[in-house]
Design a protein around this nucleic acid. Structure first.
Lengths: 180, 180
DNA sequence: CCCTCCATGTAAGAGGTTACATGATTAT
DNA sequence: ATAATCATGTAACCTCTTACATGGAGGG
């Protein structure tokens, strides 16, 4: 999904500033299936405003720069629904971790295992964080996606834990070529 | 990982043409954690050749354009190991499917469920395909990554299967606004 | 007859990332 | 003190995607 559609997705649930949109996109469940940066959101909002898909209202603030609060228009809603109508593209994962793991035979065994352990710890932390904010938001789909995320991170951690010993054996079998 | 590193990764396991590199990157396990296109591979190979990280040899073929067979140089190997030394970036998933699912309340219930069923079928097919090529390649890490992939796709399918009914209830609760 | 596989590349354009630019407030 | 949060944006850069260009072989 491009940045414009992402902005519409957030605005369709309520008005927000660019900064707030970014915060929401950085939080679960959005963070589970896409990425964004300010450098793409601010231009996207300007383009959307130019096209009439969103409206801007400047909110004055004391001791802070004005906040530009965006709200979606009828045109914006229509655009967003049209985007949802499109057949979804394939999932794409970009994982440096798996790439490294695949080339573990070129790395010191200790580094690979440390990477795996770190990954397991991160996955556990993510699961814990999601479980915290999970209880219930009142929004069923929101919670559903959160649960899906928990399941995914938990499964990944489980696999790594259950297969760590085997991996260690593999890495011992073909002796590690130490980094130059 | 950028296209250059990806090319080095493949070439480090043996010489290949640009076309063959793309084929390998499109197959598991590479396909599980990255994407590429000819438009990025061919320029990447040219740049690598310019930098001396790979060497080219033109292989004449009858009734086909010449094949440019690339092989990695010592410099290339060093570059690749250096790339592996870098701390890995975070995983990033881009999933239109999950995006749609999250906004299922704006879609006809039937469409969402159809999407889910289709996804389950795709996941099953992927698992079956991986299981086929899985038995053993002789390369332990290769098989390990394949197993990791199988586990992931299988877990995802299981979650969707186990929660499909609940999802259906959710979508019935808040009546679907049909697409305009 | 049409599609897919083989085989290489370019060019234009879209899109996004990163760094820069600014600056007060609040929490540690 | 120092870091993080709030708050917006631009500009350069980089990278990739998409479409175009070419064309024979072989299977359905």
């Amino acid at each position: 999904m491009d940045s414009k559609t992402l902005c519409l997705a957030v605005l369709q649930r309520g008005e927000a500033s660019g900064y707030e949109i970014k915060k929401k996109l950085d939080a679960p469940p959005y963070s589970h299936f896409q990425d964004t940066s300010f450098g793409s959101i601010y231009p996207a909002l300007n383009r959307l405003a130019g096209e009439g898909a969103v409206e801007v209202r400047a909110e004055e603030q004391e001791k802070r720069p004005d906040k530009k609060v965006y709200s979606i228009t009828e045109l914006g809603r229509r655009r967003f629904r049209e985007a949802l109508q499109q057949p979804p593209g394939e999932d794409r994962l970009r994982s440096d971790f798996l790439f490294l793991l695949f080339h573990g035979d070129l790395l010191p065994k200790e580094r690979v295992l440390a990477l795996v352990d770190q990954r397991i710890a991160e996955l556990d932390a993510t699961v814990a964080a999601l479980a915290d904010c999970c209880p219930c938001s009142g929004k069923p789909l929101h919670d559903f996606l959160l649960e899906l995320g928990v399941d995914h991170y938990r499964s990944s951690a489980r696999f790594l834990r259950e297969n760590r010993a085997r991996l260690e054996q593999m890495l011992s079998g073909a002796p590690a070529r130490a980094a130059e």
